[in-house]
């Protein structure tokens, strides 16, 4: 603080602090608090807001647990997001290891660029591309029919596995790069020392590379899980009535059911799950918040 004043002078420091406060309080904290406040109030007609019926209640929350349909979607969203995270990790760890250790720097750069280029295209467009591939008359079905493997098109769209696939595709980069970054700092001599002491390749991963990569894995898993659980575009485009995502439920509460209070309660529950996931991951990988923020 004093350092800031010394460096930029009083007025500028005051301005910086003021704008930061406006940002954090006005644009982040207050809206969230308002939503939480909403979530504990009943949905009332405009006239009755602030009236005698407008009291704090848990009914928006208990509603979810009383509604088997919504509860299933909620559980499935979380479970599928975990699956997305696991699948993304299974794909990204070997890829990141190869990029960081298994190839020349030039080749690695080329591959990284190749990985990033698809992400220049908007997430919605990328997901539409998958729709074209997986649709009833899409690329895969056409090819399989041509080859005579099947005679009826397979229904991919609207299935949960398809959504999981679409999300893995949409979010792999958020898993690859954190892991790549930490593996890149792994000293080559450590891998060689382990090998020299008799470690087989899988043991080198288990005892040396994976422990070293823990902070990156934690960051990758947290980002991927949060993105998957909060995803709206992918389930809307690739999904169907049987594969609804909890974000879609929240959306419909807000804008179709016009029940902001219940929507807020649902959103808050999803947020709680995500925070719980972060805490579990950090415990599991024994990394601190500071390391994750890096």
């Amino acid at each position: 603080m004093q350092a800031l004043v010394a460096r930029y002078g009083g007025p500028i420091t005051a301005l910086m602090i003021f704008t930061s406060l406006v940002w954090v309080l006005g644009l982040l904290l207050l809206p969230q608090l308002t939503m939480i406040d909403y979530s504990f109030r009943p949905a009332l007609p405009l006239a009755e807001i602030g009236g005698p019926k407008d009291v704090y209640t848990l009914e928006n929350y208990t509603f979810l647990f009383g509604n088997a349909g919504f509860l299933t979607i909620f559980a499935k969203t979380i479970w599928s997001s975990i699956l997305v995270t696991i699948a993304a990790f299974a794909i990204c760890y070997p890829l990141a290891y190869y990029l960081a250790r298994g190839t020349s720097i030039g080749r690695a750069r080329l591959l990284i660029v190749a990985l990033i280029i698809p992400y220049w295209i908007n997430e919605i467009l990328r997901t539409f591309a998958w729709m074209l591939i997986l649709a009833r008359g899409g690329l895969i079905n056409m090819a399989l029919m041509e080859l005579g493997v099947i005679d009826q098109p397979i229904v991919f769209l609207g299935q949960t596995p398809t959504i999981v696939l679409g999300m893995v595709y949409a979010y792999v980069l958020f898993m690859v790069f954190p892991i790549y970054n930490v593996l890149d700092t792994l000293d080559k001599a450590q891998v060689e020392a382990a090998r020299d002491l008799g470690a087989p390749w899988w043991c080198i991963h288990w005892r040396i590379a994976l422990p070293h990569a823990k902070p990156g894995i934690a960051v990758g898993c947290i980002s991927t899980f949060m993105l998957a659980a909060g995803s709206y575009a992918v389930p809307t485009i690739l999904g169907g009535p049987q594969s609804r995502w909890f974000t879609e439920v929240i959306y419909s509460q807000f804008f179709e059911g016009m029940n902001w209070n219940r929507g807020a309660a649902f959103a808050f529950l999803l947020l709680l799950v995500c925070v719980t996931f972060i805490v579990i991951m950090m415990r599991l990988f024994r990394v601190s918040l500071g390391e994750v923020a890096k």
Binding site: D187, A189, E192, A193, D196, R207
Partner: peptide
């Protein structure tokens, strides 16, 4: 057994 220039302890 090799002792590395930078030791390479774990």
């Amino acid at each position: 057994a090799l002792i590395f220039q930078n030791l390479a302890l774990f």
